[in-house]
């Protein structure tokens, strides 16, 4: 071989199908031909010169193939469609999202209509703890997430995914409540801590007995401790009085600690029950 290309003589012998070329030389030549268009061109010229039959066969195949090649649509490269949103929220969050917005709007309308007298019941405040509970249930519970078993078996399952999905729930709930609170005059401090405490509470309890059961239990607690007194006495429940706020903060922290300690539970099937 001369320089970077195969010699005229070697190509001639190869084209003639000569058996005397050493195996390693054939191998090297074929590897070179694979990569070098110039030598392939020279080879095809030599072949046509040496053997007219091969030349006409190649011409025939090419003339039949050429129109077909043009007719085919170019192969579409598979494109990545997975949006960043799917990597945060569970893919079945849309009904919950709609519910959150509608319920918050209704709460605002209720508060506006009743006019919130001095010690009146703020529906927005009553609602704040329960919205994230339902959101966490929607993103992790067996009955609401059809692909729960596939999700539970995936490497990404566990605390990492739980936190992502919870963060996306709070990213919807908190702004919705902020707007609602602002339009009805409720202060953020009154509802934010119960809202966060119920969120970590659902997760912590969910790691122990399953998210569905945890959500049901907490909704019952919410109805008994917050809604019932408010409706019965027509004034804000003691649980939402400013003096009780440190208690909510403690509940939030306790929930967060339990979630961190029991983080392996979320990678198992049990947490989805």
């Amino acid at each position: 071989m001369s320089g970077e290309h195969a010699s005229e003589r070697l190509i001639g012998r190869y084209a003639g199908g000569e058996a005397g070329i050493p195996g390693d030389e054939v191998w090297a030549l074929e590897v070179h031909l694979d990569a070098c268009a110039v030598c392939r061109g020279r080879l095809s010229a030599v072949v046509r010169e040496q053997d007219a039959a091969v030349g006409s066969l190649v011409e025939g195949v090419w003339s039949e193939l050429e129109p077909l090649l043009g007719a085919h649509a170019p192969v579409r490269r598979p494109r990545q469609r997975l949006g960043w949103l799917s990597t945060w929220a569970s893919p079945v969050m849309v009904p919950w999202l709609v519910m959150t917005v509608v319920v918050t709007l209704l709460a605002v309308v209720c508060d506006r209509l009743t006019g919130l007298p001095g010690d009146g019941v703020s529906v927005v405040q009553l609602l704040a703890p329960v919205l994230p509970v339902l959101g966490v249930a929607a993103s992790w519970a067996r009955g609401l997430d059809p692909a729960y078993e596939l999700t539970a078996a995936a490497p990404r399952a566990g605390l990492h995914l739980v936190l992502r999905r919870t963060a996306s729930v709070l990213a919807v709930v908190i702004p919705a409540l902020l707007v609602a609170g602002w339009s009805t005059g409720a202060t953020a401090a009154q509802w934010l801590l119960p809202c966060l405490a119920f969120t970590t509470g659902t997760l912590a309890l969910g790691g122990l007995v399953g998210v569905t059961r945890a959500a049901v239990a907490l909704v019952v607690v919410w109805a008994a401790v917050i809604v019932a007194p408010a409706l019965a006495l027509s004034r804000t429940s003691f649980a939402l009085q400013p003096g009780v706020l440190p208690g909510w903060a403690a509940g939030f922290l306790l929930g967060a600690v339990v979630v961190a300690v029991r983080k392996d539970a979320y990678a198992r099937l049990g947490a989805h029950h």
């Binding site: 997975l82 799917s86 893919p91 692909a147 596939l150 999700t151 078996a153 990404r156």
Partner: peptide
């Protein structure tokens, strides 16, 4: 790799989106 007996899926996903989502979950 795991295929559960009656596995649920997201009905509005296309086949490609579903498999892509699972590939993402599988890191």
């Amino acid at each position: 790799g795991y295929l559960p007996q009656d596995f649920g899926y997201y009905k509005r996903f296309t086949v490609r989106e579903f498999v892509e989502y699972m590939a993402w979950l599988k890191e």
